[in-house]
Amino acid sequence: MNLNPKFPLYLPGVKNGNNNVSIIGANLREDITTLGYYVSENGGIEIKFQNSYHTKEFSSFSAVLKKFIEDRQLQDVKRLGLAVPGPVIDGKSSPARLNWGLDVEEYKRDFGFDRVYMLNDLEATAYGMGLLEDSDLDAIYTSDHPEKGNVAILAPGNGLGEAGYYFDGKYLRPFATEGGHSEFSPRTNVEVEFYQFLNNIYGIVSWENVLSKTGLFNIYRFLRDVKRHPEPEWLSDRLANGNFTEEIYRAAVEDDVMICKITLETFLEFLAREANNLTLKLKATGGLLISGDIPQLIQKYIDKEKFYEKFKISDKMEDMLRNIPIHLVTKDKGALHGIALYSAYFQE
């Protein structure tokens, strides 16, 4: 896997060689933790193999790492990189979705790695996007007058990931945010009802309570329980026994179920609005990338023109917003490849 020159990532080790460096990359999620063994070569990375483990079956990340090393009979691996679903401060993290405390110095000491890196998972994903091919991007909106500048990344999945690239005039430098935990604000009378519904559940209502797999369920049950949209009995059974997001999408597209169609349309309207918020806050004149499990699943349902019209609504900034290209990442190289790439070529 080689870097796409359209993503000029700041990775100084690429120029310095850093070939044949062995790396374990790890993507930690609340359901599945995936580890891969990589070797750096020619300014890119090659994955040799990967294993996935059920996160809740392990008491610590060290236990998962030990299992992976034993399963694959690995020896003398030089570097370790971790992508984690939460903030990383001074090489430590305690993600809310995991029961693990994480510390890079612990893994360096106990496993003998030369270097250990840990990034927020969406920051790691931002590095992984440097490995995308042009065909992996679906244009939602292209500008006649695009500008160079910062780039925003919005990724609804298990949670709501938000990150960006700072453009320094030559390179793109990924950075993490915890913007998904900023407070959601309603705009219409119905949204005020929705806010009150969520406020009774959560107290503080964050954008993650709206734009995530849980958020999709929150929209659906608000429509069902508060607005009294009918739910077919057969759908109730499918939602209880299947993958909720997939079943909502299937019922909207294949079965033309009104409550599911409104659920997806409401979700996409909120996605356009938070995309607007993030783009303005980062002054992301270089573009907006939308990633994450949910947008990728419902890609064919997205009305691109309607999304763009919702996205560009602003009090005074429509001129800036209308020049910002928007792309959906259809084949996410993901946090696992991204943390391996970072571990191979980043230099302090």
Rank of each mutant, 00 (worst) to 15 (best):
V329F: 03
L239Y: 03
K66E: 14
A340F: 01
I326L: 00
G287S: 03
D90N: 14
L211D: 04
N2A: 11
V84G: 02
H337Y: 15
L172Y: 05
L268S: 08
L9W: 07
R79F: 07
R322S: 10
V329L: 00
L235K: 01
M118A: 02
S291D: 12
K48M: 10
N158A: 15
L321P: 02
S40D: 01
H337R: 12
K56L: 14
C260K: 08
V192G: 11
I69F: 14
G44V: 04
M258Q: 15
R79Q: 02
N189C: 11
L271A: 03
M118L: 05
K261Q: 13
E133V: 11
L223T: 09
V253F: 13
Q196D: 15
V210W: 10
P146N: 07
D332W: 03
G164K: 08
V104I: 14
E246K: 14
Y117T: 10
R109Q: 12
I326T: 03
A275W: 06
T214N: 15
I23E: 07
I262V: 13
G128F: 06
S93W: 00
M320V: 10
V116M: 02
G81F: 06
S291F: 04
L211W: 05
H181Y: 13
G128T: 02
S236W: 09
F307N: 06
H337Q: 13
F175D: 05
K312Y: 09
T285K: 12
L80S: 09
V329G: 03
S343E: 02
F184S: 03
V190W: 13
L278M: 13
A344P: 00
R221S: 12
I153H: 02
Y127D: 07
T55D: 03
D76I: 07
L98D: 06
D332F: 06
Q296M: 10
A139P: 15
I262P: 08
N276S: 05
G287T: 00
L98N: 08
L11N: 09
R322P: 02
K6S: 13
S22Q: 08
E46K: 15
F197L: 04
K333N: 12
L3N: 11
S59P: 14
N189G: 12
F58D: 09
H327Q: 09
A240L: 02
G169D: 08
K15R: 15
S60K: 01
D168F: 01
S93N: 04
K310P: 07
I23A: 01
F217R: 15
H327K: 11
G203I: 10
L297P: 12
F58C: 08
N241A: 10
K306G: 08
L321G: 04
S62A: 09
Y117I: 11
E191C: 03
Y195G: 07
I313V: 11
Y38C: 09
I262A: 09
V205F: 07
N199P: 08
P85S: 03
S143C: 01
Y38S: 08
P85T: 04
H54S: 14
K281I: 15
